[in-house]
Every structure is written in C-alpha cells, then in structure tokens.
Design a protein around this nucleic acid. Sequence first.
DNA 1: TCCAAGTCTGTGACCAAGTCACCGAAGATT
DNA 2: AATCTTCGGTGACTTGGTCACAGACTTGGA
Lengths: 224, 224
Amino acid sequence: MDASWIDKFKGLSRLPDDIRSELEAGSQIVTVPAATEIFEPGQTADNLLLLLEGTVKVQQRSDTGREVFLYRVHAGESCVLTTACMLAFEDYSAEGISETKVKAVAIPRKTFDTLVAKSPVFREFVFTAYSRRITDLFTLIDDIVFQRMDVRLASRLLELADSSGTVHATHAVLGTELGTAREVVSRTLSEFQRRGWVEQSRGEVRLIGRDGLERLVRSAHAQV
Amino acid sequence: MDASWIDKFKGLSRLPDDIRSELEAGSQIVTVPAATEIFEPGQTADNLLLLLEGTVKVQQRSDTGREVFLYRVHAGESCVLTTACMLAFEDYSAEGISETKVKAVAIPRKTFDTLVAKSPVFREFVFTAYSRRITDLFTLIDDIVFQRMDVRLASRLLELADSSGTVHATHAVLGTELGTAREVVSRTLSEFQRRGWVEQSRGEVRLIGRDGLERLVRSAHAQV
DNA sequence: TCCAAGTCTGTGACCAAGTCACCGAAGATT
DNA sequence: AATCTTCGGTGACTTGGTCACAGACTTGGA
C-alpha cells in the first residue's frame, strides 16, 4: 500500500494529514465482480463508493420493467448521489450495476458524516461531485427531449468505443442506454453502415469512419 | 416576528436553540416579485433559498433557446440543488423564475457552510432535500422516456389546477412544462375537450371532468 | 372607435421515433 | 446434428415533433 488511494481523487489530495488518516482508517477497499448489482431500489445505501478501477452503470427500472440509463461512474469518481439518500435515510430509486470488475473504497455512513462535519475540503469534494452529476442529469434531460436519436447514438458510440474503435454491446443494450427501442438502434446503425461509418457483427460495432460520426455530432451542437 | 420561519420547515424544527438563532441571525428574508429571474446559468449561486411563500419554476434553456421544465419549488421547500454549485463554486446550468410573488429566506454560502459543519440536524435537512429532488429528476426522466403525452398532460393539468379547477396557462407554457411542442398540447387538449373532460378558453383550461383525467392517469400507472 | 401589432390557438402535411408482430441467422447446449 | 436462445432485420402502424400558415382574440395607441 505505497501511495494512498486518496491521491487518485483530485478533490481529496488537499486533505490535511489528520483527516487523511481518519478517512483511510474509517473506510475499506472492496472488490466487486463484473455484472453485479451494487445497489438497488428500496435499499438504504450505507456506503459511499469511490471507484478506483472499473465502471458502474446507474439506471432506473420503471414500473413496466424497462430501464433507463442515467449515468456511468468511472474510476476516480464517486457514486455520490447515493449519499443523499444515505444521509437522509431514504431509499435510492435507481440501481447500480458493475460493468467490469470494480475496485472501490467504501466509506460508511458514519465516517462520511464525521468527515463532512469536520473537513471543509471533504465537504467541497462531496458537493462538487454532486454538482457534476446533477448537471449531467440536466444535460441528459435536455438531450432526451431535444436531440435527434442518430446524433445521440453516434456520440454514445464514440464514448463507448475501446482503443481499437470497437463497441461491445448489443443493439438492445444500446437501446436502453439511450432510452429508446432496439429497432430504432438497428435502423440507425444500418444507416451508419450504409454511409460507411461503421461495420457490424453480432454483439459489436466497429467504428471505421469516426470522422463521419464526429461530424454528425458536431453539426448537431453547432446550433444556429 | 412571532413564530420563527424555521418552524415552517419540518426538517429544521428539531434544530437546537443555539443553531436556530445562528441560522436566524445569519440569514435574511427577501421578497421577489412575480416573473423574475432568480438565478440563471453562468452564475455561481451564493444563497440557498428556502421558500416561505410562492413558487419557483426551475428549467433549463438549451442551446437552441428552447426550454425544458425541470421541477417546481413550493413553499416549505428549498432550491437545494443550487447549493451543490454554491459550495462547489460551480456554475448552475439551470434558471429559476418566480411564478408568483415569492417570500424566501436567503442563507448565504458562509452561514450554510458553517451550519452544515456544526449541525447534524441541518445536515440531514439538506441531504433529505437533495434526495427528494434527485428522485424527482429520476422519475421525470422515466416519464419523459416512457409515458404517453396524454397521460403526462392530464396529470400536469390536475397538478396545476387552482381551487376552482382551472389551469391558467397557455398551450405554449404547458408545452415547455412537458418538454413537448405547443401543437401537441393543442391536439391533446382538443381530444380531452371532445371527451368532455375540459373546457377551454384563451389562456386557461377548466377541468370539468376530473374523473376522466384521473382515470387516464391511474390506468397508465397500473402497469401489468 | 378603429386599426395595427402581438399573442394564442387550430390545422394539414410531413418526418422522426416508438410499438408490435414476426422471421431468420448466429451462437450455445446437449 | 437437433434444439434452444439470443440477436438482428423488416414492414405496418401509431404517436409525437416540426413546419407553415391562418384565423381569433387582446392590447395599445392614433
């Protein structure tokens, strides 16, 4: 345990030494296998998770059993929206699922509360994280309401592509990510393929004309 | 100043006396006329507002100049999402507009920060408020993605109706509230009228068959 | 009082997106 | 090899969003 995990989080590196050790002592490093439900509706969250490795997908399951993707937590970020419910002793209405193997720091309610009280730096860290997520949610809503599907799909593909330019996801998965139907994804992807922007095979999409996709996304954002 | 405003907020009434007086001393009661911009994008919020009277509408203006309604703050609630940005020194991306004359308590950044540090009760108040708003945002997203417009309009009409069962709003306003186009609202309202649920005149909708509207809303929520 | 300008609502044509039903192809299982 | 499951493709249809335009109502001068 050479360098502390704390330094992986920009907002926390400024913590004074005493708080640092308190945080380290009062928290715990956990690992979770891929595709595991980390938290779910109807459960009071009792740990704040800070992701060291991997990604977590947060989505809401609606009454009908369909799912809306809300946001994705990457390494170096925190599942901070759970904390509101944590401190408020309220249920969280969204569910979090590890997409990969996940390594994270779990900060129990008690430590969290103490640190929020004691440390201005920690407080700022928490509220900054909040404000990020909330603005993300706002832009998500904006996107859903006003942005065309082809643009949203294009930009999501660019986000999800691995280093070799391939997206590993079925049409159905892409559908729930964007809150739309599988058929719509299929149709749009065929169109992208026709334009020579992507190649498809079962369960994956290879981006072979990033330029086209990027142009599409840019053109939609360059509003008149 | 007989009864303190503090007792209007359920979560705050349990505050110990010393914190109460600190809160009262460190904050200020303000009034804002109707239809005034209270906060806007690109501005760091420096006060947390607790509404005593009136309502505030929070919406996001998109690049194209269109607006999406996000949520409405009523008396007894707080514009709490601004506080994240407040403490994080970040810009708020949404705008808040008073719909009526508004009386509110303004808690400056400094007082807020002190109280969050000092008082567990205040902390819980803040985080509870957060969690409410966030869950609201989640259900909003869910609604937008999965719920039919007629259902959403019906339930919004029921919410917005005054004591005499009249909604004072133009079709255009209802459109932005629901994130849809005016024409869609017009068409749906004509349909409601055809069914004898509402009567219309310029700038207002009178609900004359609440039952029908309520049935529509209920039937949509009673998912199989 | 009457006109002009602005605001609000209605409508038809069209396009984008979501839904439904169904099918065949590609992997996985045995 | 036979079967099962998952994935992707397609056509027909409905709902919702966009555009263009017209008529009705309101308001504020002239």
